[in-house]
């Protein structure tokens, strides 16, 4: 029975991927892509990787989809009809993709069995972090440097987006400007956020011991914020505002500060003293969740479109 389900899932994923590659209408393709992200999340749950599944659904399907939809909406008015990739270009891309896929298949089929894994080592070291979820331990302890740098990458992406604003608008507020706010959207934006915030807080909190964590929680928070901005209940903030910037950098700054304190307290950069490792990690995660939510929300909101007020 489960085999049948898995086969159906794989067939569905393949069909959807083909549909996305072939469909002519961009918006249609993006909507299918969002669906693809959700299905892929389902696939990850079948592989017992709940953390990956949650992230795929939130980032792969959710945030990426919204970004693509907004880009498509911006491009639509000036789009020249029929100015898409040439036939030769598509063939070339298809051949390159097929070659990479064949190489991947070759490599994956040649994996040693049982596959070498660090999972036992990650579990063995878990007690000294005070955490229960090995994925969180990898992200915040064993490979904290990767996570810290990733957060900086996220901020850099936002700096890049902001730099696209014209000089006189730089520092001003972005605008999500829907032409009309449909009734259901306004209703959703008024009723959904309390639940969304609750789910986000739960995801972040439970991440220490079970699947969940900062990125997933932050994404849900960002989605709630975007909903409020899209329904025009609250305007997007000016990007030069001190408070906005402090929330943005709060997570990475706390992370870095505790990392440096590790020199004094635990004998090294990004080392935690064993007795207070868990509270430190949860504290970092809390600040990171807020920072991620702000970064993702502002990434979707885009560059400033109104001049900064005096």
């Amino acid at each position: 029975m489960t085999l049948l389900l898995d086969l159906a899932l794989v067939a569905w994923l393949l069909a959807l991927a083909l549909h996305i590659a072939r469909v002519r209408d961009d918006r249609n393709a993006i909507v299918a892509f969002i669906g693809f992200g959700l299905l892929l999340g389902l696939g990850w749950t079948r592989l017992a990787s709940l953390d990956v599944a949650l992230t795929e659904a939130a980032i792969g399907g959710g945030v990426t989809g919204v970004l693509l939809l907004r880009a498509e909406a911006h491009l639509r008015p000036g789009k020249a009809s029929g100015a898409s990739v040439s036939h030769g270009g598509k063939t070339l891309a298809a051949i390159a993709c097929a070659m990479v896929a064949a190489g991947l298949a070759l490599a994956v089929l040649a994996f040693p069995s049982p596959a070498p894994t660090l999972a036992p080592a990650a579990a063995t070291a878990l007690p000294s972090t005070g955490l229960g979820n090995p994925v969180t331990a990898v992200l915040l302890a064993y490979r904290a440097l990767d996570t810290l740098l990733e957060k900086v990458v996220l901020i850099l992406a936002l700096i890049g987006v902001w730099s696209l604003a014209p000089d006189h608008l730089w520092g001003g507020a972005p605008s999500l400007r829907p032409d009309v706010v449909p009734e259901p959207l306004a209703y959703l934006a008024q009723t959904l956020p309390p639940f969304g915030v609750l789910i986000a807080v739960y995801m972040f909190w439970v991440g220490a011991d079970a699947p969940g964590g900062t990125f997933q929680g932050g994404t849900v928070l960002a989605a709630m914020w975007l909903l409020v901005m899209l329904a025009r209940l609250r305007p997007a903030p000016e990007t030069r505002r001190r408070s906005v910037r402090l929330v943005l950098i709060g997570g990475p700054t706390l992370f870095l500060a505790i990392g440096f304190l590790g020199f004094a307290m635990a004998g090294g950069f990004l080392a935690y003293p064993e007795s207070i490792a868990k509270p430190l990690i949860v504290g970092i995660e809390a600040a990171l969740t807020l920072s991620i939510a702000a970064t993702l929300g502002l990434l979707v909101a885009g560059p400033a479109q109104t001049a900064p007020g005096r």
């Binding site: 660090l118 080592a121 990650a122 070291a125 302890a141 064993y142 490979r143 904290a144 440097l145 590790g262 635990a266 004998g267 090294g268 950069f269 990004l270 080392a271 935690y272």
Partner: peptide, 8 residues
């Protein structure tokens, strides 16, 4: 980094 030996 952090005293965690590679490969972990």
């Amino acid at each position: 980094v952090g005293g965690w030996q590679p490969p972990l």
